[in-house]
Simulated scan of single mutants.
Amino acid sequence: MKFGLQLGYWGAQPPANAGELVVAAENAGFDAVFAAESWGSDAFTPLAWWGSRTERVRLGTSVAQLSARTPAAAAMHALTLDHLCGGRAILGLGVSGPQVVEGWYGQPFAQPLRRTREYVEIVRKVLAREAPVTSDGKHYALPYAGPGATGLGKPLKPIVHPLRADLPIWLGAEGPKNVAQTAEIADGWLAIYYAPRLAGMYNEWLDEGFARPGARRGRADFEIAASAQVVLTDEPEAEIERMRWVTSLYIGGMGAPELNFHAQVYRRMGYAAEVDEISALFQAGRKAEAAAAVPDELITDTAIFGDEAHVRTRLKEWEDAGVTMMLISVSDADQMRRLQTLVST
Score class of each variant (00 low, 15 high):
7 L>E: 01
12 A>L: 09
13 Q>H: 03
14 P>D: 01
16 A>V: 06
18 A>H: 08
22 V>I: 07
23 V>L: 11
24 A>P: 00
26 E>W: 06
28 A>N: 01
32 A>M: 01
47 L>I: 06
54 T>R: 10
54 T>F: 11
57 V>A: 04
66 L>W: 01
69 R>Q: 04
69 R>M: 03
76 M>K: 03
81 L>V: 04
89 A>H: 01
91 L>E: 02
96 S>H: 04
97 G>V: 03
100 V>S: 02
101 V>Q: 08
103 G>I: 00
109 F>D: 01
109 F>S: 01
116 T>H: 09
116 T>F: 06
117 R>T: 12
118 E>Q: 12
121 E>R: 11
129 R>T: 14
129 R>V: 13
137 G>T: 14
139 H>A: 08
141 A>M: 13
141 A>L: 12
141 A>P: 10
148 G>H: 10
149 A>W: 05
150 T>F: 03
151 G>E: 07
160 V>Q: 10
162 P>K: 06
163 L>I: 07
170 W>H: 15
173 A>E: 02
180 A>M: 02
181 Q>S: 06
186 A>C: 05
189 W>G: 08
190 L>D: 08
192 I>G: 12
198 L>N: 14
198 L>M: 15
198 L>S: 11
216 R>P: 06
217 R>K: 15
227 S>Q: 11
240 I>Y: 00
242 R>T: 15
246 V>Q: 15
247 T>F: 12
251 I>L: 15
252 G>L: 09
255 G>T: 10
259 L>G: 04
261 F>S: 11
263 A>M: 09
263 A>S: 15
264 Q>E: 15
268 R>W: 13
269 M>E: 13
270 G>V: 08
273 A>F: 03
280 A>C: 12
284 A>K: 07
290 A>D: 08
290 A>M: 11
293 A>M: 10
294 V>F: 07
296 D>Q: 11
300 T>C: 09
301 D>V: 07
302 T>N: 07
311 V>Y: 01
314 R>S: 01
323 V>S: 01
328 I>Q: 01
337 R>L: 02
338 R>G: 09
343 V>I: 13
